[in-house]
């Protein structure tokens, strides 16, 4: 079997059974799940048609272990929410703050592939790193766990001060960390108005926006189509990418032209909304793929990433049965 055909192919029911019986270990489920198992709702997809077996609860890790071993589901999920009565999704206590970065949905993808590939998965990894920097540097959040989901990453935040926040605040956090709006560029003091472009302000939201915009511009390619950015503007932005690598924003803006620059950053701000799936972040009762479970659609392990700098999904998240497909 060819190398690329081995990876990212759906797992057969037999492969799923082998995974859960021979490779999977209940100890691979992170402590943040096992320590709160009785407060979480679990959901399963048995046929590959979506997680319609929901409202499941497990009183112990051993019961969960037996369930997964025996049923070898197509996909397994657990809630981000903690409940007093998880079987009825009742008595909400708190929810993890979650950011879902899916490689196939990244708005500016260098690869242009149809599904996911090494290039866009690496982009997803870079995006997660930058989101973590903002959550830590600006918002002071520390208790973060990165999960490789099979086709991207889940960033799960457990700092107590954000776990009780409602959907509206979570929505604002998403918009802040992804740079979803162009910062204002006029500031007033004592009746005078001063113009300050986002790239001249090295802190706060303007800094976040500058970082996300730089990332987007540096990943622009000829084949990418963006609303309100015509071919000439795209070409000029790509031509001047090197200027931005050295953070010479003023020169870059000058080369593009002030009005076209505004158009460019406005379009990028709107594209940034696609960096994470905001619906996941604002949904307090979402179920997320269970770390250690199998993403059967692509035959990848959903797993906690301890060192995101060194993580390589094609090395670390491929189940053994995929490598053994070769010998068939």
């Amino acid at each position: 079997m060819e190398e690329k055909e081995r990876f990212l192919q759906p797992a057969s029911p037999e492969e799923r059974r082998r995974y859960y019986r021979e490779e999977w270990n209940v100890k691979d489920i992170p402590d943040f799940i096992s320590n709160s198992i009785i407060q979480r709702e679990f959901g399963f997809d048995h046929m590959g048609r979506g997680p319609n077996d929901r409202y499941r609860v497990f009183r112990s890790m051993d019961l969960l272990r037996k369930f997964l071993r025996y049923r070898a589901p197509f996909a397994a999920y657990s809630s981000v929410a903690f409940y007093k009565k998880p079987r009825r999704r009742d008595g909400w206590i708190k929810s993890e703050l979650v950011f879902d970065v899916d490689a196939k949905d990244i708005p500016i993808r260098e690869c242009g592939c149809a599904g996911v590939c090494e290039i866009c998965l690496n982009q997803a990894r870079e995006i997660v790193c930058s989101l973590m920097d903002t959550l830590k540097g600006d918002m002071g959040l520390k208790d973060m766990h990165v999960i490789y989901s099979g086709r991207g990453y889940h960033l799960r935040v457990f700092d107590e001060e954000v776990m009780e926040l409602d959907s509206d605040v979570r929505g604002q956090i998403v918009q802040y960390i992804i740079g979803a709006e162009v910062p204002k560029n006029e500031y007033a003091q004592d009746g005078m108005t001063y113009k300050l472009e986002h790239f001249t302000i090295p802190f706060g939201y303007p800094k976040v926006f500058t970082q996300r915009t730089k990332y987007a511009i540096l990943h622009l390619k000829d084949h990418i189509q963006i609303d309100d950015i015509n071919k000439k503007l795209l070409k000029d932005a790509i031509k001047n990418q090197d200027i931005l690598r050295e953070d010479k924003w003023g020169i870059f803006k000058g080369k593009i032209g002030p009005q076209r620059y505004q158009r460019l950053i406005k379009s990028i701000a709107s594209l940034n909304m696609g960096l994470v799936d905001a619906k996941v972040s604002i949904d307090l009762k979402r179920i997320l793929r269970l770390p250690s479970s199998l993403h059967s659609m692509v035959s990848m392990k959903c797993m906690e990433v301890k060192d995101i700098g060194k993580f390589d999904p094609f090395q670390d998240a491929v189940p053994k049965f995929v490598f053994e497909r070769k010998s068939k």
Partner: peptide
């Protein structure tokens, strides 16, 4: 939550 204040209007450092 009530959008009386927006996060981009605030300056934050380490929380």
């Amino acid at each position: 939550s009530s959008r009386k204040i927006r996060l981009p209007d605030l300056v934050m450092s380490h929380g």
